[in-house]
Nucleic acid binder design. Structure first.
Lengths: 195, 195
DNA sequence: CCAAAACAGTTAGGAGGCTAATTGTAAGCC
DNA sequence: GGCTTACAATTAGCCTCCTAACTGTTTTGG
């Protein structure tokens, strides 16, 4: 569902051929890039169907996960907290944790509130802030939904052995580090280094 | 830009911990899944900036690539054609190749036409059909844009050796096959096999 | 030969992203 | 105390994707 990606990826031999015409084209890099996006897209689509069957989107699901760690101690562990931390509560903190803008978070909370999964409450101390909480209905949804969703994800990766998964993650982490560096480089120096 | 994904992925030890509470959670599968989507998202964002700097989106870029193979023989090789094939021309064929709906393709062609990169022409034989072609301006754009874009993609994967790229692709292909099977299974049997 | 079905493309309306502008509240500073 | 700045959240408006409904054209078949 998410990006537009070609249905059929070019074969590697074709990239090799094309590289003769385009000196800037690195065939193995292009192949890795295209396969990465394509595979992620497919995996995302499977996961999305699992969510859509319960009338929930990936965005909303992320918010529910973030809120859930404040409700269920065991959920906190899922999200990377060493101990039981309350987790984000304000729209701003949620937006930061979920990596979306505050405006987007407003929209997500709107629909979650409309569906009865979360509730906004004004902060008694700072009247600029709101506090967002899972409703009992939201907690119930997570309890009911998560096991099946975990199975779906396991199914997607079920074809890889433990060792292969480990290798895959280590390669992906390398790419992540590279993208992080590229982003840092671009942010810090719109003017490339002098000299 | 595309999906909402948590900014910080849970660490593997946390997933291991959490798996004690959720019997359906497979820690290594979840880790692989999350890293796959996250890495793809980062790579996509880098590529998207490269495109956005030229006021073009991934969707529009895909359409331009599809049309370009009909103009430039060397471009055809990039797209996986064994020989110089004319490539898709009608909105329906483009939508099919790009894996989006026809309605979406209408919108993409609208904006590309507005920006002067493509042109719609009525089919003289079948008056239901349109024929979409790159304008000279569109061809010029591709010639000017592609080398830099190839460099961007190469940069993203630049941290991996040739061997690592090969390994990565082979693992991703395995996952693709799995997702394809999962999709086929779901499509063919809403009613699971009898007996 | 003409009605029905199939098909190409578009339009209408929805969801979830984004940026930019607004509103209301808190904090800092004469 | 009151002015200015900073901040939280929302609103408004745009983009790209979707599905569903609509328009016009071709094909099919009695």
């Amino acid at each position: 569902m998410p990006h537009l990606l070609l249905k059929d990826l070019p074969r590697y031999e074709c990239l090799l051929e094309a590289a003769r015409e385009f000196p800037d084209l690195d065939p193995s890099a292009a192949a890795a890039f295209l396969h990465l996006l394509h595979t992620s897209d497919e995996a995302f689509a499977i996961s999305d169907r699992s969510l859509a069957a319960h009338n929930i989107s990936h965005g909303r699901f992320g918010v529910l996960m973030l809120l859930w760690q404040g409700v269920q101690p065991r959920a906190a562990k899922l999200m990377g907290a060493d101990e039981c931390v309350p987790g984000p509560r304000t729209p701003a903190a949620l937006a930061d944790a979920a990596n979306v803008t505050r405006a987007t978070m407003t929209g997500l909370i709107d629909t979650l509130e409309r569906d009865g999964y979360v509730k906004r409450e004004p902060d008694p101390v700072d009247r600029r802030q709101m506090s967002v909480r899972l409703t009992p209905s939201g907690v119930k949804f997570m309890e009911a939904f998560l096991p099946g969703h975990f199975k779906t994800i396991t199914g997607i990766m079920g074809t890889l052995t433990e060792a292969e998964r480990k290798t895959l993650v280590s390669l992906l982490v390398k790419v992540q580090q590279q993208t992080a560096e590229l982003r840092a480089r671009r942010e810090s120096s719109p003017t490339p280094a002098p000299g």
